[in-house]
Design a protein around this nucleic acid. Sequence first.
DNA 1: TAGTTTTGTTTCAAACTTGAACCAAGCCCG
DNA 2: CGGGCTTGGTTCAAGTTTGAAACAAAACTA
Lengths: 174, 174
Amino acid sequence: MTTRWLTPKEQRAWRAYVAATSLVEDAIDRQLQQDAGMPHLYYSVLAMLSEAPERRLRMTDLAEVLKITRSRLTYAVARLEKDGMVRREACQYDKRGSLAILTDEGMATLERAAPGHVDTVRASLFDQLSEEQVEQLEAICSEIARGLQGDERAAADEVPWRRRASQPSVSGCT
Amino acid sequence: MTTRWLTPKEQRAWRAYVAATSLVEDAIDRQLQQDAGMPHLYYSVLAMLSEAPERRLRMTDLAEVLKITRSRLTYAVARLEKDGMVRREACQYDKRGSLAILTDEGMATLERAAPGHVDTVRASLFDQLSEEQVEQLEAICSEIARGLQGDERAAADEVPWRRRASQPSVSGCT
DNA sequence: TAGTTTTGTTTCAAACTTGAACCAAGCCCG
DNA sequence: CGGGCTTGGTTCAAGTTTGAAACAAAACTA
């Protein structure tokens, strides 16, 4: 199998993709760092927690949602905890487990940062795209994500104290 | 202006986007790290140099193409130089300038890594998408990129010894 | 139930990235 | 010419990310 090189069309798409995604992440990170003193990932941690029931999530679940490694999350939460945005609690049903809990201060920070963040997301992405393209983008990204994670999910929702629920907090903190 | 939150559709698109891009970068980085001992960015440095006339580019130009900061590039090239993939030379027309030059070893490494990389790009992206979606993706990403860099480019191609040219080396090392 | 494997999470050291500060070398203009 | 501003690049310190190794509790299994 002598390697199926990318077609010119694919090449262009790939390069555009790499450029665009890198630019977008930079823009988002910069804004968040400026206005909230934390990088995108850290903001996402707060955002996810804010939507979780009781504003708490187990480390593994959080890592799963955010699509990052446990290790990375550990460090992120450690920093957020030091800054008072998050609190930790041992999971009483599984003594190995550890819960990350959004504090009021974390919630406040999130609410303060959300508007600017949304603006940036808009400016970076949605302002440039037609409604149709937004739909296409969603479809494309969903495909890709699905392909990259075999969908070994579907589990969870099994044990009661691990149920996934939703109770949005900051409307669309993204 | 009370913040225009994202519509549900936009929310979904944004979240899918964040998840997908993060997964893709991870996959690419992992593969390249495994097979070539370097992260995606470093590979891209080699790839860009391989296409440049005489396999050389000024630091600023390289940073521009790659859409990264000069600082980041300095460190990347330093590492690649230490590993013998790249050589540096002073720019004789502008004594401030510095050229990064792909060595034969760097070229060899690139050629060795390219097939696996392309496979991963395919597996991560193109295998999941229809031809139409590939086109859509390119259009979308181009829009976004254009929006995020005001296009203060168009310059360059002015000074002869800075001309951009092309003389592809590893066919589609991406 | 002891031994083994798996799962949840942290820790370590090494690598990478960041933004600001810094140093030259070009440029510009009176 | 002699500042002063801009441009090309590097350096610094601090922060973040990585993958592998280490732990400990839970789940199996014989």
